[in-house]
Design a protein around this nucleic acid. Structure first.
Length: 153
DNA sequence: AGTGAGCGA
């Protein structure tokens, strides 16, 4: 019991001896001494502007032609495709629209973002740069000692 | 299945 009383006394002593510096840090100034993460619920920036648009929220029935015709009202569409599954051939619900210039892409993006297409609200934003396709020269891979590896004996 | 956020033969 003596130990517990001593501990309590020590605790109260520590509590009573709480430094004024801490309270000054907590209540004095306008900012807390902790790190400021006030914006954790921020959405990441979509992408850098380009002439290529990523269109999501498409209906399953929306085809490449429908996508091009819908976006052609805001500029010259160079390439438009709805991403379809290779084996089933059905739409995956998103596609890409490439305009001739970036200004047309900007107009098409702000003009078609949030609009209805075949009964679905679509979202148009700038597409991310695509990974470059493998060139035939880079397909030759060498082994650890420099000798080219053999495939499919 | 015609699934519902996402980034393509």
């Amino acid at each position: 019991m003596a130990m517990r009383a001593a501990t309590l006394a020590a605790a109260t002593a520590v509590k009573g001896a709480a430094p004024n510096g801490l309270r000054a840090l907590l209540f004095s100034t306008s900012r807390f001494p902790f790190s400021p993460p006030p914006t954790q619920t921020e959405k990441p920036p979509p992408a850098e502007p380009s002439n290529n648009l990523f269109v999501s929220g498409l209906s399953k029935r929306t085809t490449t032609d429908g996508l091009r015709e819908a976006f052609a009202k805001f500029g010259d569409v160079v390439d438009a495709r709805v991403v379809t599954d290779r084996v089933s051939g059905y739409s995956k619900g998103f596609g890409f629209v490439r305009y001739a210039t970036i200004e047309d892409a900007e107009k098409g993006r702000v003009g078609m973002d949030g609009q209805f297409l075949d009964g679905w609200v679509i979202f148009a934003e700038y597409a991310r740069p695509r990974p470059p396709p493998p060139s035939p020269q880079s397909s030759v891979q060498n082994g650890p000692n420099g000798t080219p590896m053999q495939w499919r004996t």
